[in-house]
Structure formats: C-alpha cells, structure tokens
Simulated assay, not measured.
Amino acid sequence: MGSLLTLTLKSLKKRLTDQPSIQIQQDLGYVTEVRFLFNAPAPESELLKFEETNQLFLPKDYKEFLLMHNGARLFIDEKSGASFDVLRISEVQENHQSLDYPEGWYPIAYGLESSVLVMNLNEITPHKRSNEYLFWLEPGESIEHATPLYMNFEIFLERLIISQGVEYWNWPIYKARHFYKANDLED
C-alpha cells in the first residue's frame, strides 16, 4: 500500500483517464464540470535548494507531492472561474518574500476568493508524516488570525478531493441555527 497522498492522487487520476473533466456537486445544489491540471515533478535539487536557502526541512508529505507535481490547479470551474491552485516551489519562495510572511511561514496554495493555505514549518519534526503544519488565511487577515487546520498536506488534499473542492474545514462552525442564515435559506 502506498502513502495516503499516492492513493488519493491515483484514484483521482483514474477518474480522469476517460474524460478531461468530472461533474461534481458542491454547496447549495451547485453542479458543475471541473478539470484538474498537474505540473511536471519538481527536481529534487530545487527542493534541496529551497531547504538550504531557508534553513528548514520541507514536510515529508508535501515534499512527496512536489516530487510528483510541482504545483497543480484543482477543481477548475470554467463557469465561475474558480480553482484551487497549489503553488510551484519557486512561487512558494517568491510569495513568502513578497508578502512578508514571518520566518518559517510559507503560502503553498490559493483557494477561493484569494484565501491562502499556509504552512508553518517552525515546529515540524523532519521526516515525519504526522506533523500538523497547515493554516487557512482569509483575504485581508494577518498571519496571527490564520485558522489552524490541525493536519498535514496529504490529509488536507484527500479531504479537499472527497469534499469536491469545498472548504470543508469551515463546516463545523455552521451549526444548524447558523447555517440557514449564513446561506440565505429559509429556516
């Protein structure tokens, strides 16, 4: 059996072999066709250079993804123009520097409405899969207000695919009494 990351990507790609897109259902009955684009692998030398330059270790699962695909565009919805974009390692470095993130904090993906998936590498255990280093940052928020997701990249990606691209980490905050109001639905 392979890693969770390998199993997740293998299953998704199997669904895409006969067709360039798949139909999904998201929140509030929205049904659409989405596509996925995966970049070529990152050279290991580029990842080592990133680690040396920043004096840190990339998490094992995230590094595994980059060695398979140096970035990707997921859930590309032509109707709405939305997608979930995992950055190339060079873009991670560029965004870290240009957006003035604190030391050890790196943006690794952009979601809906310019939200950012951020990793905090300050307290990870190198070469261990179970690190919980991901945070979600809403547009305009400072890093101090980033929401901890309590997971690593491979768990995040598996759940994103299972939930069909929906921001599943926000589901617990919508209790029944708040859900209808937040979505302009009748109670």
Rank of each mutant, 00 (worst) to 15 (best):
Y168N: 06
L160S: 05
G140V: 02
G165K: 06
T147Q: 15
L149Y: 04
Y174W: 15
N152A: 05
H178W: 13
F153T: 01
D184L: 10
N131T: 00
K128E: 12
T125K: 09
L160V: 05
K181L: 14
H145Y: 08
R129Y: 14
S130D: 15
K181A: 13
F156R: 00
L160N: 03
N170I: 07
P126E: 03
L134A: 04
H145N: 15
E123H: 11
E158R: 08
F135I: 07
I124H: 04
Q164D: 14
L149Q: 05
N170K: 10
K128D: 15
D184I: 11
Y133V: 00
Y180P: 05
D184F: 12
E123G: 03
V166C: 07
T147K: 12
Y180S: 12
T125Q: 12
T147P: 01
T147H: 05
L157G: 10
P126F: 03
R159S: 09
G140M: 01
H178A: 11
T125A: 06
P126W: 02
L160P: 00
Q164K: 15
H127F: 12
R129V: 06
I143C: 05
R177E: 15
L157W: 08
F179P: 07
R159L: 09
F135P: 02
H127Q: 11
Y168F: 15
E167T: 08
K175G: 10
F135G: 01
N122P: 06
W169D: 05
Y133R: 00
I124P: 07
Q164S: 09
F179K: 08
L149C: 05
F135R: 11
